[in-house]
Nucleic acid binder design. Sequence first.
DNA 1: GCGAGTCCCTAACGCTGTTAGAGGCATGCG
DNA 2: CGCATGCCTCTAACAGCGTTAGGGACTCGC
Lengths: 208, 208
Amino acid sequence: MPLTRDDVVREAVEVIDANGLAGLTLRGLAKRLGVSAPTLYWHVTDKRHLLDLVAENVLAELPARRAPAEGEPVLDWLADGIRVRRAALLAHRDSVLVVAGNRPTEDALPEIERTIAALVGAGLAPGEAVQVLTALGSFLLGDVLETQAALDRPPGDVRPPHTEYPHLVAATEGFGDDDERFETGLALMLDGLRARLATRAAPGSAAT
Amino acid sequence: MPLTRDDVVREAVEVIDANGLAGLTLRGLAKRLGVSAPTLYWHVTDKRHLLDLVAENVLAELPARRAPAEGEPVLDWLADGIRVRRAALLAHRDSVLVVAGNRPTEDALPEIERTIAALVGAGLAPGEAVQVLTALGSFLLGDVLETQAALDRPPGDVRPPHTEYPHLVAATEGFGDDDERFETGLALMLDGLRARLATRAAPGSAAT
DNA sequence: GCGAGTCCCTAACGCTGTTAGAGGCATGCG
DNA sequence: CGCATGCCTCTAACAGCGTTAGGGACTCGC
């Protein structure tokens, strides 16, 4: 059975997961597939193209998203979607470097539309809803980027405690892990959003 | 006058600004400096090392930060610091790719200490303060990453409007520019932080 | 005068993405 | 049956990359 494009993409994902994005070479990938390097150019136009397909493949792992359930708070539903995305990104090494810069794929549009609809339904202006959604996306991207970057450089990263910085020392103790740090940031944004929605839905409970 | 390490780093920054990180090659950089490629290894141990120095150089452009003025709201002061950082990152192409993964430099510590101190003074636990600060940093990084990635891929990026997605269409109209999008996200996080501080400073104005 | 240190050079190695061009192998058509 | 057409793969090779080996000037302190 001949090699398919999907075989190539899947193997590329495995290589990246194992060796990082920098560890992905066409020759190495070809060898793993039992094929010579130029052969890959029959299945894929470019390395850049291959990476686009890899990004698509990673994002396609996201489970299809349900609409918010009846009576379910919109913000809870929103937070859940972000957590799912974060998990998907964290599941693949260097995922941010691969995914960043990709405009949303055609088939991601329905979900974006649905999410914006939910936010508009909650009281946001359409443009505002997109801004809020993008901001959440930026935070997600930055968080995963830092988390994965920290994983790449662990050797001897312990710094001698500087007693001259008392707050910093105190902080490193009650800091928590990556998930906790993420949840703190997410809570911040959602709380801000909640406050904003409150001023929209009930503009003073008296005026207008 | 012989070449100095600073000459090399400064020229590297210029090359990245002009041609992007991928456009930086040691041979090209050497030619611009009127020198052969291996000569660079006299001034710098590695390309990786050079990039570390570039990152340091970019971050060093940040103006020394003052402590919050008497009576100045801490959150305003905090927001200002973030805006300054964003401007510095946006001023250099691919800055996120260069800077990401660098643990804070030794001489960034005093400022971090000062910021944490301000947040703790406002009512946060030390660990919490670091989490909040990191979250703001993640958002900043993600925002700049997306902004710069969008700049790298502008050719024919206009998508035909899909009338099947009414909210999306409505949203693209009132969307605003990059700065506005950033300010929306920043406001979200700061509002969330404000709400959190309110519960700390005055824990119920009745209980406890 | 001379060793040490500084700053630069040419030559070359192994790797990368990528192209040129050819060949085998199945299928469908005359 | 013979033959052409697509599919899938190959070897050979190119230019460019980061990097190393080794050497050669030129300046300083002794």
